[in-house]
Design a protein around this nucleic acid. Structure first.
Lengths: 220, 220, 220, 220
DNA sequence: CATGAATGAGGGTTCATTCAT
DNA sequence: TATGAATGAACCCTCATTCAT
């Protein structure tokens, strides 16, 4: 716990971190490719070039890698969304454009969505996993919710449902569309998401002057 | 188990059909309850009161029951939708009301949706299954598409995307929302689906009525 | 469950019984040779000439074979003891001679004792096993106890402790001595057991005329 | 963990001895608690607060700790028995009382007996261990044997078998009874051991006093 | 057609042990 | 000396599937 030689210690830690990272990456890749259930720890360890024991030196179970992946996933999305989040000084048009850009990103991220679906499925079956999962999910949901909230506030309109719910609905739509993906048809996900968003805006009532504040306040 | 009389042949066929049906029902039930992957053929056979051999006398593999189940699934949905389909003489308001009723049905059918998701996931992994699956799926998609199409026609508006795509999007939304269900929150699926539908209607056709200039501009 | 052809059915059942019996025998052998803990199901199945799955078709777990063995063990001992038990018309001298013969039997049965020790050890660690084990053990204990009781009654003496306790003590002695066995020394077990038995008799008080009945009655 | 001063060498040796001692203690504790087979080196190291590597710096294998433990076991028992051994000036009654006290001690030491049994079992399986074990065992056996010998000498009687054999038999009895211990019955070990000892005394030496004719005849 | 014992491959997991640090 | 990540073999067990009956 103290240093003998800082460099040596670090090398060890680094090597361990590398092993862990490689295992996570391989696990992600295989989970996406074959599904969580169909991926064995043997597969992960073999493909990553380690023994099964190495896996258990780094994770306590298969579920544990899934959780680790979930955490990284969360971080990545948070970063990704902060671009759209940090939009106080933008016009509604700019925000919509950015959202569209983000939506089109999803097109190239179907693998990711598939894994996200697996995560949700697994959460529905494993109590222990569900608890951890719910935390991450709720956080993500409210992040997107706040983007939605800001957008409607900018437009001076009332969202036709709770922003968090709308956020969840958009994620549901994204995941559901990813699931439908086939090679025989071009993926219309991004476009359809925007169509739905424009629909929501179109059906939203205009707020009176006092409301934008409230919305902001409610969102905190 | 009782008669070995002249009616033997008929009885035998009937009994076989019964065996098959019971196995499918049990399989459905267990797939929904524990998922496709977590359900073993032993489980199915045991719970249905037959031997594993009986299973293999009726189905060639686990995937085969899944396919059989898929076919029945399709039939059921077709019947269910024919109510909304047969709507030539109804007013748009009636159609919307019926769609709303149908959407709220989904609330109580999340198990079903979960299995549907499993089916889609499995189709993404198994080539042979994917082919069968795609047929069923496309048919279903175009059925709902035609409902959407009729609805917009009744309203004298132009759908903001291909009806089939919109149908697919609604199914994606439904499935995605089912996946998000947790016991800790009331399920807003039906309501959200209607919010999105009203949004689409609002953004369609008579622009001067519902769609503000700025949004329209952004909509390129 | 009914007969197609009695012979065929029987052949199947027989074959299954054979498999089961072979597995039990092999398990016994290996448990004795290497100990319960050190014997793997793989070992048992391999040595018996079956797959591991065959093992699990016949037993639900490793503990289950141990229990099955225990049951057979019990039956064998019961039969073995019934010779000494059925001794109402014998003289005390005859009973002692038979007990001595029985004790010398133990010499050739050290393997058996070793396994018995393993059983007891395992019962001390597995709650589920302990319950089954205790039943068998108590029965066996009281069987031997009744032999002890009869012997003292015949001799017109009062046992210096409860017959069941004395029985347990003799079994403890037998097991303990089996454990001490080494190839470098001849095994004195049978002889020592008789020495202790004679000691007990020597130290036992004479009963008055009324008592032999009581002892018999108490033993039921 | 604190000093890196001039006394380093000494401190180091001490610290190493401490490590070793703690590992042995922990191992003993866990062996008794869960058995030799069920205790892993990781468990020992973790519980003792060291790494697995530390274990291998002090012992060459799991069997090695067992041997080390055996040596300490031996020392402890030798000390314990020297009280009874050093009994030249005592009366036979005092010796018996002390033996009784010692026997009742065993009641509270069943864990210890269990481990002793494990040791014997392991010796039956491991050649290398058996050799070491036999040395310790024989020494212990003859120590107790000499106590027995002295006791009979004091009483002016002839032991009914070799003192060493009688000693071994008493240890066998003790171990066997420890094995039978269950929570549902009070443990009669100490009492039974004394019953047997009194029996031996009664059957020894002055035949005219204690041994009836018929029994004597049967005793060939 | 139905049975279910048996297969063989593979599942997740544990463990004594090694070795670079 | 002590560390603990990594190994590799073994563990118990489950499963889809086969096949003699």
């Amino acid at each position: 716990m103290s240093q003998k030689t800082a460099r040596k210690r670090l090398t060890r830690e680094e090597s361990q971190a590398q092993t862990r990272e490689r295992l996570i990456e391989t696990a992600q890749h295989l989970f996406v490719l074959h599904g969580y259930g169909a991926t064995s720890i043997r597969d992960i360890a073999d493909k990553a070039g380690y023994s099964q024991g190495a896996f258990y030196s780094n994770f306590s179970s298969k579920e544990d890698v899934l959780l680790e992946f979930l955490r990284q996933h969360m971080e990545a999305e948070a970063t990704q969304l902060s671009n759209v989040m940090d939009s106080d000084e933008r016009t509604p048009e700019q925000m919509l454009a950015e959202l569209e850009a983000w939506a089109s990103t999803l097109n190239h991220d179907a693998d990711w969505c598939m894994l996200s679906i697996e995560l949700q499925l697994h959460a529905n079956r494993s109590q222990t996993f569900a608890i951890e999962y719910q935390k991450v999910w709720d956080e993500h949901r409210s992040e997107i919710g706040s983007v939605v909230s800001k957008l409607f506030a900018k437009l001076g309109r009332t969202p036709p449902a709770e922003p968090d719910e709308l956020a969840a609905a958009f994620m549901a739509l994204t995941h559901g569309l990813a699931l439908q993906r086939v090679t025989t048809r071009p993926d219309p996900s991004g476009r359809l998401i925007m169509v739905f968003l424009h629909g929501l805006i179109a059906s939203a009532g205009f707020v009176d002057k006092a409301l934008p504040m409230d919305v902001k306040a409610a969102h905190k």
